[in-house]
Amino acid sequence: MINISYSDLSSDPRYAFAVGKIRALETNLITNQQVNRLLETKDANALWSELGNNRDYEAHLAQFYDPQDFEAVLSSELKRVYALTLGISAERTALELLALRHDFHNCKVISKACFLGEDTDSNLSPLGTCPPKEWEQLMVAEKEAGLCRLPADLMQIVRDVQQQLIDEQNLRRRDIIWDQALYQYLSRHAEKSKNLFVQTWLKIRIDGLNLLTYVRCIRQKSDKGLLKLALIDSGTIACEKLQNAYEGGLETLASLLSPTPYAGMIQEGLACYKRDNSFSCLEKLFDDYEMEFLSQARYVSLGVEPLFAYLLAKETEIKVLRILLVGKINRLDKTEISKRVRRLYA
């Protein structure tokens, strides 16, 4: 596990109120034991009423009685948590990093919808730093006239990406160009936050994406050029090393990572991938690894780390609830559902 030394964690008294509040809110987070109880429920309705006992969800569930409405409940809960956390944070740079992912997601969705001539509305996220409609206005109508002041550097990146995409007809390559732009921007933003915890989290996230890209490219027998295009710089594993190891397949990847903190996780992940021939186990292990890293925020009593970890913990909680609800609605077996359930923060 990548650990941050105690002396590198924050001690900023400006966060005293925020951390006190977050510690109280953390007691409402769903625990791993509670997930097991939710898994045991007989159907989606039983799970829904069990969820109503949680303080964070009871108000939402009072408005929605049908488990089929889970998307509305989960998205309004996440919206509430984003607004609350950003509202109490003494400084927004670190937390904005998380919101910026949603801005890029919206740009990607709008760009894809324009390219394919589809509707965007259902896939847009309300959690970005600016409302999706304003991005739409900038990208489609090419004008900036909203209430939200879109950051100039971000607008420039979006315009640059749009220029790059003019001649690109391949959907996967278009996604790669957006992802590259996102993570380059996030890396610069993380530097601005001057917070080692946040910077390391981003590196772990990039490593995870790169390793999944590597495995995906091998599975699809893609050429090395595509891998080179898709790998994102600024992780802890150098992209060149991954490119050089590509010819050797998955075994070379395991030996490449054996001296790194990912050794155990990648061994387990690759064994699981070979057994099930599916990425879901590998993705789950990366998410669990990230959560284990985030749990170090428990030792910070004055700093942005607990807020940052809480937001991500809530995102994971909502992802797990979505997995459970979709599984129960579709009457999947509980062992099948539990394979996809992520480790939680609480």
Partner: peptide
């Protein structure tokens, strides 16, 4: 005053929920 300020701010955060 600095110490009370820090501890009381943290307490305020917790009191706002509990």
């Amino acid at each position: 005053s600095k110490g009370v300020g820090i501890a009381a701010s943290a307490s305020d955060g917790l009191i706002s929920e509990s």
